[in-house]
Write a protein that binds this DNA or RNA. Sequence first.
DNA 1: GGCTAATCGAGACGGTACGTCAAGTCTTCCA
DNA 2: TGGAAGACTTGACGTACCGTCTCGATTAGCC
Lengths: 195, 195, 195, 195
Amino acid sequence: MTAVATPRGRPRDERVHAAILGAAVDIVTEVGYAATSIAAVAARAGTGKDTIYRRWSTKAELVYEAVFTATESAPVPDTGSLAGDLTALVSALVGEFTAPAAAAALPGLLADFAASPKLRTGIRSHFLGPAKAGLAEVFERAVQRGEAHSAVPADLVLDTLAGAVFFHVGLVGAPVGQDLADQLAALVTRGIEVR
Amino acid sequence: MTAVATPRGRPRDERVHAAILGAAVDIVTEVGYAATSIAAVAARAGTGKDTIYRRWSTKAELVYEAVFTATESAPVPDTGSLAGDLTALVSALVGEFTAPAAAAALPGLLADFAASPKLRTGIRSHFLGPAKAGLAEVFERAVQRGEAHSAVPADLVLDTLAGAVFFHVGLVGAPVGQDLADQLAALVTRGIEVR
Amino acid sequence: MTAVATPRGRPRDERVHAAILGAAVDIVTEVGYAATSIAAVAARAGTGKDTIYRRWSTKAELVYEAVFTATESAPVPDTGSLAGDLTALVSALVGEFTAPAAAAALPGLLADFAASPKLRTGIRSHFLGPAKAGLAEVFERAVQRGEAHSAVPADLVLDTLAGAVFFHVGLVGAPVGQDLADQLAALVTRGIEVR
Amino acid sequence: MTAVATPRGRPRDERVHAAILGAAVDIVTEVGYAATSIAAVAARAGTGKDTIYRRWSTKAELVYEAVFTATESAPVPDTGSLAGDLTALVSALVGEFTAPAAAAALPGLLADFAASPKLRTGIRSHFLGPAKAGLAEVFERAVQRGEAHSAVPADLVLDTLAGAVFFHVGLVGAPVGQDLADQLAALVTRGIEVR
DNA sequence: GGCTAATCGAGACGGTACGTCAAGTCTTCCA
DNA sequence: TGGAAGACTTGACGTACCGTCTCGATTAGCC
C-alpha cells in the first residue's frame, strides 16, 4: 500500500513543468546538448533556475526526460517471423535516434550518463529495461517457432543494436535511412537464428 | 610539392608537447572528460594555456591525441578463420576501449565529435579508417576461403562492433571481459558467414 | 475616537507574534544582522514567511522591534548632579548598545534605517524621542541648580553620546567597559557646565 | 629593503582599476550601498566580475576604496588655538561624511566593517589611524600652549567626533551645516580645555 | 653579434554559466 | 480569515573556465 504523503503547500504547476520540457527540447534541438544551459532553458520557459533545479538535479536528467518522454514506446512487434520482428524493432530504434531532438541530445546525454554511476543505473532500468523486455518477448516467440535457440543473450543483442545505431547516427551525421535498419536487422537475425 | 615554409623564430619544444599530452591523459583518467579543463592541463604540465591552444584548438582534439596516440594500432589478425579473426579484432577493440584513459575519455569525446562536423569527419578518417581497412582485409580473406559473401558491408560491421563495445563499456561500467568479445564475435560471424 | 474596525475572520495568534520575535533575536545574535533572513526566522519560529510579512514589511522593522522591545527604557536618572546624571545615562546607553543582540543588530539596523527616509523618521521619534526627553529633563534640573546654561542643545548632545558609544562599540569590538562611560560623561559634562 | 617580487604575467591595467572605482562611486551614489552589487559595478565599468574579485574580496573593501581614496586627507590644521583647530577638524569631518558618495555609502559600509573582525581592524588602522595622529598633534600643541591637559584621550575624542557626525548625518538626512561643526567643536573644546 | 621572429610561463581580461540562496508574492489545504 | 507549507519569478552571490591578450624572458635562424 503506497501511503501517498499528504501534499502540503502550493502544488507544483503542471504548465510550468510542460513549459520547461518544451523549452529544453527546443534549445537542445537548436544549439545542441553541450551549448544548452539551464539558465537558457529557464529563460525560454519563462521560469527561474530554481524552479528547474527543484525538479531535476542535472542537465542530463532534464534533457533526458524532455527528449524521451515525448517519445512513446512503440508496442512490441509481432510480425510472425524473427526477421520481421527485428526489422521492426531496429526501424523503431532508428526512428527514435534520428528524431531531431534525440539526435542532437544523445551523444552528450550518453557522455553525462556514462560519467555518473547514479545516472548510469537509472538509464539502464528506465530506458533500456523496457526495450530489453520487448526484445526478450520477440526472442521467446522465435524460440517457440523454432527460429532461435533459447540461450540468446538479449542484453548483448540490445547493446549491439542500440550501439550500432547510435554510433552510426552520431558519427556519420548523414541522414540514416531504412537500409541501415534492414541491413542491421538482417545481420543480427542471421547471427541468431537456428540453421 | 610540399614547400615547407622555412621556420622562423624559436622552434616549438618537443618536451612541452609531451608534457601536455601526459598531463591530459592523467587528468582525464582522474576526473573524467567533462571535468578536464585546458587550464588544469596547463597547470599540471607546467605550461601556459596559450601553449596548448597553439597546438590544439579544442579540448576534444587534445584529449583525442593524448589518449589514442599512445595506443598502437594492433596488426590485422590472420588466424586462418573468420571467427578467429573477428574474435581477435573485437578483443583488440575491447582492450582499447576499456583502457582507463580511453574509458574515461570516450563518451565525452564522442559527444564533442558528434557535435562538430569538422571533428566528425576527422575521426572517421583517422580513427575508423584504418580499422575499416583492417576489417576489409579480414573479409577479403574470408571470401577467398569461402566463408563469407563478397558483399559484406565493412562499414556497417565496424559500426556494429564498435558501437556495441562502446555502448556496453559506457553504460555498464562493470569490468567488461573476454566473454563479451567472444559472444559479440560469434554473433557477427554467424551473421556474416555463408552457410 | 479610535473606531476600531470590527475584526473579521480568525484573530492573529499572539503566541506566533512572540515566537517570531524570539526567533529573530536568536538568529540575529547568532549570525549577525546581514546574515539574518526572513526565511530563517520563519523556519526557526515554525511559521510561514507570509505570517511575518503580514506584520512587518521589512527585516529592519522586525529586528528593531525584536531587539529593542525587550529593552525596557530605564527611568530618567536623578542623582543630584549633572555629572552623576550624565554618567548614569551614558552607562545605560552603553548597556543597551553592548547587549549581545543589540551589538549584533545595531550597525546593520542603522544602515537600513539610514537608507530609508520612512524608517529614519520612525526611529527618530520612537527610539531617540524618549531619550531626548530624558536628557532634556536632566538638563532642566541642571539649569535650576545653576550647573548648566539654558541653551544646551539636547539634540546635539544626544547624537554625540549615542554616536560616540555606537562608533566605539561597532568599530572596536573589544569589550567596552565602564571607563568609556565615565570618560565620555566627564567630557560632555565639562563641555556643558557653567564655570 | 623591500625586495619587490618580480612581476610575472600580464600586468594589471590601471585604467580598468580606475574604471571600476569610478563605476562603484557612481552606483553607490545613485542607488545606495545595499543595492550596489558587484555585478552591476562590473557591468557599468565594462569589466568581468573576476576582474573585480581579483582586486577586492568584498563589496565593502571595494566601496571603501572607491569612496575614500578620492578623498584627500586634509592637512592637520594649525590655527593657533585649540578651538580653531578642532573646528577645522570637525568641519573637514563633516565635509567628508556629507559628500554624496560618502553619505550614501557610510552606514552600510560601517555595518559591514562592524560585522567582520578583519575589516574592522583594517579600518581602524587605515582610516582612523591618520585621523588619530592628526588629533594627537593638535592636542600636543594645545598642551604646549597650556590650553589642555596632557592626558587627553585622543581615541575617545576621535570616536566622539566621528560618531556624533556619523550619527547625525545618517539619521537626520537633512543637510548638515556649519552650525553642527561649530557646536560640536565648541562642546568638545570646552570638555577638554584647562580652565 | 645584433636583428627578427616565434615560443614559453604567467596571469590579466571580458564573458558566460554554474548551483545556491534570499527576496517578496502566490496558491493550496487545514483550522 | 489566519496560518503553515511550499511553489513561484527575480536577481545577486562567489567560483570556475572559456579563449584572447599582453607582459618579460628565451631561443632559434639570418644577415
